[in-house]
Simulated scan of single mutants.
Amino acid sequence: MATPASTNGRRRRERGSISVDEIVRGAFEVADEVSIDNLSMPQLARHLDVGVTSIYWYFRRKDELLDAMTERVLLDYDFSVLSIEAGNWRESLRAHAHRMRKMFTNNPIVCDLILIRGTRGMPAARPALEKIEQPVAALVAAGLTAKQALDTYTAISVLVRSSAVLQRLQSRTADDQFPREYWEQVLDAEAMPLIASIPGRGYRIGMADDINFDHILDSILDRAASFATVQG
């Protein structure tokens, strides 16, 4: 039986001639162009030049394909916690926070799969907790209680994830919702002289940028340092 021709004039690949790895790699290529939300099985089939049934042979639903993509991300990207020393805990935590945020903000698909969609239990809770035992131990050695150390690390983790997600959602907006012209009309020097006197501050309200990220991160680290000082 002749293999049916594809819509672009080439002969479509036969069922079974494509592997799971090719499908997953192709899914990343399509998602890079149209996003995770807009990725569809028919679109992926056209990209791979196969019939859509060849995709469904391996992945019955889009969620199963996204699970496979998530597993690939967890294998390919380094989500480990940097080793933190008690005597250098603040700088180490700061570097770790910036590294993780950069990984998510520089890779929209990673952000969509891991943070927005969620890992659906991957990695498991125990391995995830095992990864943060070392930084918690370092903070305890620096003078914090176990609860204070865990709360500090958890707060930094929430900051990293929420900042990356908010920046990702803001990047999806086709047009700037709050252009400079908007703020020029809103910032009344007579009604709000202090805010209006600070260059650029009004333009960044609610923005998940580096300055806001560092301000919150420093606040968390300052609080942790106060725990260490009091108990020391």
Rank of each mutant, 00 (worst) to 15 (best):
A138Y: 14
A124M: 10
G143T: 05
M122H: 12
R117N: 06
T152Y: 03
L129E: 14
E130P: 00
Q148I: 01
A138P: 11
Q148S: 13
G121L: 05
R161Q: 15
Q148C: 01
I156N: 08
R120P: 00
A155Q: 12
S157I: 00
V136D: 05
P123A: 05
M122D: 06
S163A: 13
I132D: 11
L144C: 13
M122P: 00
M122I: 07
L150P: 00
T119G: 15
M122C: 02
Q148N: 09
I132F: 15
T119K: 05
A137H: 11
E133T: 06
T119W: 11
Q148E: 15
I156P: 05
A142D: 12
T152M: 02
T154G: 07
P127V: 03
A149T: 06
V136Q: 13
Q148V: 00
T119P: 05
I132Y: 14
A138D: 11
A142V: 10
A124F: 01
L159G: 02
R126W: 10
L139G: 09
V136A: 15
T145D: 11
T145E: 14
A141Q: 14
G118F: 07
R120K: 12
G143Q: 07
A125Q: 14
G143N: 06
G143D: 11
D151P: 01
T152H: 03
L150W: 09
A124C: 03
V160W: 12
A155E: 11
L144T: 01
I156D: 07
I156Q: 06
A149C: 08
L159S: 08
S157Y: 01
Q148R: 08
P127F: 04
A138I: 06
T152S: 10
E133K: 13
S162Y: 12
R120C: 04
V160M: 14
V160K: 08
